[in-house]
Amino acid sequence: MEETVMHRMKRGAITCRDECTVREVAQIMVVNRIGYCVVVNEKHEVVGIISPRSILKAFGMDLDSTKAKEILLPYTITITPRSPLSEAIELMNKKRIDHLIVVSDRPGSKAVYGILHGEDLVRVMTGVGGAA
């Protein structure tokens, strides 16, 4: 049976609002020691993801007035818990991002279901937590 995203993802994600400033997003990442932040709108729908590289885009700008929505990587590709893991890894390499947002597979849903972390996949490759 083909391994799916469901097997390796983590439920839940750390999020911020699209109106947050870049400084706030950087602080969320540093305090939580994570390499991503999912951006949601007022309806809690996914708008995009911010990686450390997205934050670099704002270097030299006023970090207290630049908003998260100006630097985010827009959420366009749907990865659901049932997507094959190989497809997710291919997407990570294509987008050069080591975290992917997983949304619920209900039609039209844009609610965050979980996150697929690159570091969790590396841990699996070492043989800890089930063979790859």
Partner: peptide
């Protein structure tokens, strides 16, 4: 030098403040 090192610098969280937050 990683991108996360630069994010830490941009977050402007001082070492003492960081310990306080945790």
């Amino acid at each position: 030098l990683t991108d996360f090192d630069i994010v830490r610098h941009m977050s402007d969280i001082k070492v003492g403040d960081f310990e306080q937050m945790l």
